[in-house]
């Protein structure tokens, strides 16, 4: 069969034949290649769920029924794709609560227990580099972040002459990441937590460039978590299984703290260096620390108003 029109062949016949062949080839290609993609068809969803995901609106624009449907889709997808029964909650913020965090850097010994607990609680990929908490090993007598080391691995900590500065999302009250997002996929909730709608995020990573604390992380690949290690208690804005190509961040363990539980990092800290509570409650521990201890905020001069303080015993 020749690919060029023959001199005795009318052009419309050639064209018809060409289109026919094209359709055959295309159909065959579609039939052979589609099932060969790594994940089941529609990314592990039914066709209805895939369509529902595609037409899902912004979190703040969805009415309760639409959110309920979205939660169901996430649960079914996790069941089909990871084989785990998860519960995705949509717990609303507690009225009259704004969360604040304080860390006693005199007490932090650099054990990294918070990092481990955070990864397990928030379903971060075990193979990726995504860790919400970065414990910086700093030289005593200065606050030079440039010479800090966060890959430190000595036999025992603390090392002489060093102190430890855990850095995570500072939940800024004037968050530059929110301003940078071109699609408003990230915003500050009424309880002060900056959250992301992973379904709305387009993965442009502008927010990562805007964040002065390196608190946002990009999923270059789909987070890989062993099925038995997946935390099934999740929140839509928090630790639900994330797709590839979205940004994620610390949410003060929104799935725990909105139920009154401590964040996983505070629960795991063996030294009690972490203080968490309601900034609006005058009797809370966080308010005692802010009013009675010498506190500072990281890169305060940038004016992002972090709701995250560091203090020392002195």
């Amino acid at each position: 069969m020749s690919t060029n029109p023959q001199p005795d062949q009318p052009l419309d016949q050639y064209r018809r034949g060409f289109l026919k062949k094209l359709g055959l080839v295309g159909g065959a290609a579609a039939a052979t290649t589609l099932p060969a993609v790594g994940h089941p068809a529609w990314g592990g969803s039914t066709l209805g769920d895939a369509v529902g995901d595609f037409f899902q609106s912004h979190y703040k624009r969805m009415d309760p029924e639409e959110i309920e449907a979205a939660l169901g889709r996430i649960e079914r997808r996790a069941k089909k794709r990871l084989g785990v029964e998860i519960q995705v909650a949509n717990t609303p913020p507690i009225p009259g609560v704004v969360f604040g965090y304080a860390i006693n850097i005199s007490k932090c010994q650099g054990y990294r227990r918070c990092v481990t607990a955070c990864v397990e609680e928030n379903n971060q990929g075990r193979d990726s580099q995504v860790q919400y908490i970065r414990v910086l090993q700093m030289d005593k007598g200065g606050m030079n972040l440039e010479t800090s080391e966060h890959y430190y691995a000595p036999e025992t900590v603390p090392v002489d002459g060093k102190f430890y500065l855990p850095v995570q999302c500072q939940q800024c009250d004037d968050p530059p990441c929110v301003k940078a997002c071109p699609v408003q996929a990230t915003w500050m909730e009424p309880d002060g937590i900056v959250v992301i709608d992973y379904n709305w995020c387009i993965g442009c990573r502008y927010c990562m460039a805007a964040c002065p604390y390196w608190a946002r992380h990009f999923n270059w690949s789909e987070p890989q978590i062993p099925a038995e290690a997946l935390n099934p208690v999740t929140h839509y804005l928090g630790n639900r299984p994330r797709p590839r190509g979205v940004v994620e961040k610390c949410t003060f363990c929104i799935q725990r703290t909105r139920l009154g539980r401590q964040p996983a990092c505070q629960e795991a800290c063996p030294t009690g260096a972490r203080v968490f509570g309601n900034l609006l409650d005058p009797d809370s521990e966080i308010r005692y620390v802010l009013e009675n201890k010498t506190v500072f905020r990281l890169k305060e001069d940038l004016g992002t108003e972090p709701k995250f303080w560091y203090y020392t015993d002195v």
């Binding site: 006693n104 007490k107 009154g260 009690g272 509570g277 521990e285 009675n292 203090y311 015993d313």
Partner: peptide, 21 residues
């Protein structure tokens, strides 16, 4: 140190962040 501990600036709290301490 005891005053800090009594009010939450020192020592470890267990359980919930709110309510019974």
């Amino acid at each position: 140190r005891a005053r800090d501990w009594r009010h939450g600036g020192h020592g470890k709290r267990v359980g919930n962040w709110q309510g019974e301490r």
